[in-house]
């Protein structure tokens, strides 16, 4: 029985995977078409227009938008992860006043999307004269409810407190302990969070939609939307740009997939 079941399972998961891959595949196939031709056939095969599309994409301000997206996402991710890990560690390692209040608050903010305050945030950024810079797109990620909750859960479940205790006995300072012992110890959790935050900020749409007004701060999702004349949307070029834009995410997820799945398993299952 097992002999029949095993291949069947593989066929099944292959089918599911194909369904997952299909639009992704279409994205790549469509990027090889000329826009006009795309509507005349079913673009399931590859055409020969990829280079022209790439030329259109890179001939525009794409690289700048790409650079902006990278900058915004990297900076957001690094600081968000660090801040989250710090607060997560504090909540696990110390008993202090308002600890449970803070915990509840984090859980609550995890579910209340920050974008709700976007009107107030916009006015705040205006008062601080930060509009027209990339900072508004970064600052909003710094205190992320999900990140804090995630790190708290992960550290609680996978950091042996004895290690911290013994470091204290050895006279290591708390900050030193945090960076040298705690962080390496919860690496899968950190990698998972890095991937998620990077993904979310890379794909972020609403906040840049409000704050990006000129070419110098444009991020990819906004850029793609304005690519091509409003009256003659260059569909193929847009899709090509998006395919190129997915590359960093793809790389990150492939590189981090082992840690990511390990992290998700530990953080979400044991927690």
């Amino acid at each position: 029985m097992n002999k029949i079941r095993k291949p069947l399972l593989y066929i099944m998961i292959s089918l599911v995977s194909l369904a997952s891959l299909f639009p992704f595949y279409m994205m790549i196939a469509m990027s090889t078409f000329k826009t006009e031709k795309m509507f005349q056939t079913i673009p399931l095969y590859f055409s020969n227009y990829l280079l022209n599309n790439l030329k259109t994409v890179f001939g525009s301000n794409f690289l700048r938008a790409y650079g902006n997206s990278l900058l915004v996402s990297c900076v957001s991710t690094v600081f968000c992860t660090l801040i989250s890990a710090m607060v997560g560690f504090a909540l696990v390692a110390y008993r202090f006043r308002f600890r449970s209040v803070l915990k509840k608050l984090i859980m609550l903010t995890m579910m209340v999307p920050v974008q709700l305050g976007i009107v107030g945030y916009m006015i705040e950024m205006r008062t601080l004269h930060l509009t027209g810079t990339r900072l508004p797109m970064i600052l909003i990620w710094l205190a992320n409810g999900f990140g804090a909750y995630w790190m708290m859960q992960y550290i609680e479940s996978s950091l042996p407190m004895e290690m911290v205790e013994s470091a204290r006995v050895d006279g290591s300072g708390e900050l030193n302990t945090f960076f040298k012992i705690v962080l390496p110890c919860v690496k899968p959790g950190i990698v998972t969070l890095i991937l998620l935050i990077f993904l979310w900020s890379w794909n972020s749409y609403l906040v840049p939609l409000v704050f990006v007004n000129d070419n110098t701060t444009m991020t990819i999702p906004i850029f793609i939307k304005s690519l091509g004349n409003a009256y003659m949307t260059d569909y193929a070029a847009q899709i090509t740009g998006l395919a190129v834009a997915t590359v960093p995410l793809l790389l990150l997820f492939i590189l981090g997939s082992r840690n990511f799945i390990q992290g998700l398993t530990a953080g979400a299952v044991k927690g």
Partner: peptide
Amino acid sequence: FLPYITTPVA
């Protein structure tokens, strides 16, 4: 995971 990481714009 791919669908999950694909940009919503796409």
